[in-house]
Design a protein around this nucleic acid. Structure first.
Lengths: 154, 154
DNA sequence: TGTTGTTAGTTACAAAACCAACTAATACGC
DNA sequence: GCGTATTAGTTGGTTTTGTAACTAACAACA
C-alpha cells in the first residue's frame, strides 16, 4: 500500500503496468517491425480489420481508442504496403470502407499466431491460478467492457 | 487462452497491459505536466532522486531502465527548472552526482502524495483479494526483482 | 608509460507522436 | 431550402523519442 513517504516506485501501479507493457510488447514489436516494417498503430489497425472485417477509420478509432490522425496515417502506410484497400462509401461519402487485401490477411494470420505465442510465453510466467484474475483486473483498470457491444466480428 | 483464429484483442496480454497502463497514467501525467511542466522521464528521474537520494545518471538509468540519452535530457530539463543540482565527482571525473534542490524536494513530496492517491483510486477498482496478486504478477511479467539489491535508500 | 578498451554522459539527425487547424460531406432546426 | 452544427478524415508544424556517433575520463595490461 503506497504511502507518501515510503512507497517504492516498484509498488506504484502505473509504473508496474508501464514496465510490464513494455516488457511484453518489445519482442512482438520487433517481429512486426522487422518482418513487415509495421508500426504499433499499423499492427492494431491490421488486427481490427482482420478480426472484425470491413470497418471505417472512425470505427477502428473508437474501438481501439486511438486518435484519428494516427489511424489516418496508419491506414495510409498499410495501403502503401498493399495490406489494406479502401473505397469511399456510396451512401455516406464522408466515410471510407477499409478491408484487408490477400496479402494483408496473410500478414494478419501470421501476426495473430505470433501474438498468441508471445501471450502464452508471458502468461506462463504467472501462476496458473492467477491468470484469469490478472486479465480480469486489467480489464477493470483499463475500463474495457468484456467483448460484447462491439462491431460485429466478421 | 488466445487461439490463433479466434482470440480477441481484449484477451491479448500486451494490449491489456498497454491499455491499463495508459488509463492509469493519463490523469497523473496531466497533473505533473500542468503543474510542473514535466515529462514522464523527468518525473521518474525526480522520483529516483527524491526516493534514493544522491545518484548518478547511470544509476538512475540502470534502476529505472531508461536509456541514458533520455536521462540526460530529463536531467537537463530538471536542472533548467531548478529542481535538480549537479556536480562532477571529485574522484571519478566522468561521473556527475545529482540531487534535488529544495524546490525539487517539494515537488517530489507533492507528486509522491499525488501518485499514492491515484494508485489507490485504481487499486480500489480491483477486488481486495486480487491486489497483492496483481502486483506480484506484474512484477514477474516486467521481470522486476522485488526491491532488494537496489541503490541504498536515502 | 602508452596503447587499447571501456564507461559516463552529450549531441545531432531522423523517425514518430501530438495537437490544432483544415476540407468535404451530412444532419439538424427553422 | 438555407444557415449552422457535426462528423469523417487529412495535413502541417511542433515536441518527443530513438539511434548512432561523439567527447572525455578511467582501467587494464603489456
Amino acid at each position: 500500500m503506497p504511502d507518501t513517504e515510503t512507497f517504492d516506485l516498484q509498488d506504484f501501479l502505473p509504473y508496474l503496468l508501464n514496465e510490464a507493457a513494455d516488457a511484453t510488447s518489445l519482442e512482438f514489436q520487433r517481429y512486426y517491425k522487422d518482418r513487415y516494417g509495421m508500426l504499433r498503430t499499423e499492427w492494431r489497425v491490421l488486427f481490427h480489420l482482420g478480426h472484425y472485417g470491413m470497418m471505417t477509420a472512425k470505427q477502428i478509432s473508437d474501438s481501439a481508442r486511438i486518435h484519428k490522425t494516427k489511424i489516418s496515417r496508419a491506414v495510409a502506410a498499410l495501403e502503401e504496403k498493399r495490406f489494406v484497400q479502401r473505397e469511399r462509401d456510396e451512401v455516406d461519402r464522408r466515410i471510407e470502407n477499409l478491408w484487408l487485401s490477400k496479402t494483408g490477411q496473410a500478414a494478419f494470420r501470421d501476426l495473430s499466431a505470433q501474438a498468441a505465442q508471445y501471450d502464452q510465453i508471458f502468461m506462463a510466467k504467472v501462476p496458473e491460478a492467477d491468470r484469469e484474475a490478472l486479465r480480469r483486473c486489467l480489464r477493470v483498470i483499463a475500463d474495457i467492457q468484456t467483448p460484447v457491444s462491439r462491431p460485429t466480428p466478421r
